[in-house]
Amino acid sequence: MKKLSARRRHPLAAVVVLLFALAVTGGLYAAFAPADTAKADDTAAQSLAIEEGKKLYSVGCASCHGTGGQGTTDGPSLVGVGASAVDFQVGTGRMPLQQQGAQAPKKKAIYDQAEIDQLAAYIASLGAGPSVPSKDQYSPDGADIAKGGELFRTNCAQCHNFTGKGGALSNGKFAPSLEDVNPKHIYEAMQTGPQNMPSFPDTTMSEKNKKDIIAYLDTVNSSKSQSPGGLELGGLGPVSEGLFAWIFGLGALIVVAIWVAARTAKAKKS
């Protein structure tokens, strides 16, 4: 450093500084220019996706939600629901709806992910709404599972049961089981509040909170989660457990008692 500052008045110093500055400028340009062209590509791809999405929408959705997503008596308005809602509803197969009913059940998804993205792009272009979360937003890695459990019991357990087994609501509606639901879909459901589920927007339940909840569900209610109690009997609580004990526990005792009494100990069998 001392050597460098000693030569700062050298006749060639200005040339060196100038060369250095040019190299930095060139390097920065090289680093950022391709990004700009990519962005331009993105915009083009985006408008293409909206075009494609609009076509898919007119065929599959418009009969209930209206030609411009304004809603009809058969389906709610989609203006402002955001890409996230589309990704959830179509991605879990809930939409398109098979028939009107108490609520749309989960079924096999009809559109593939590329088509869903196009539909989502079109709906998102109708009005601002929550966008599809990125992987690091919903991935359960590095989240606080205990806090997630606390949040789940405060916000979700009333309908979805303490370990996400689901439960009944009024007039045929129900809170579905959360077992092995894609973390992305859980995140989107909290964000958008599908059907009768209330939403839990980022303003009242932060992104970190949502991540914690997903991590909790991943621990207690997924195909790889382990139950120390063994046979869960549906995890529904005392009703199924009591019924099991009364029928199979007591039943086994009765069978043993009958078996003991039915066999005579006499030498001469009568």
Binding site: N155, G193, P198, P201, T203, T204, M205, N209
Partner: peptide, 21 residues
């Protein structure tokens, strides 16, 4: 006070269709 975040709630935090404790 929002039970999730322990922060005081503002009216703009609460959207139509959401549920907060």
């Amino acid at each position: 006070i929002n039970q999730n975040t322990n922060q005081p709630l503002r009216p703009e935090d609460i959207q139509v269709g959401s549920l907060t404790f």
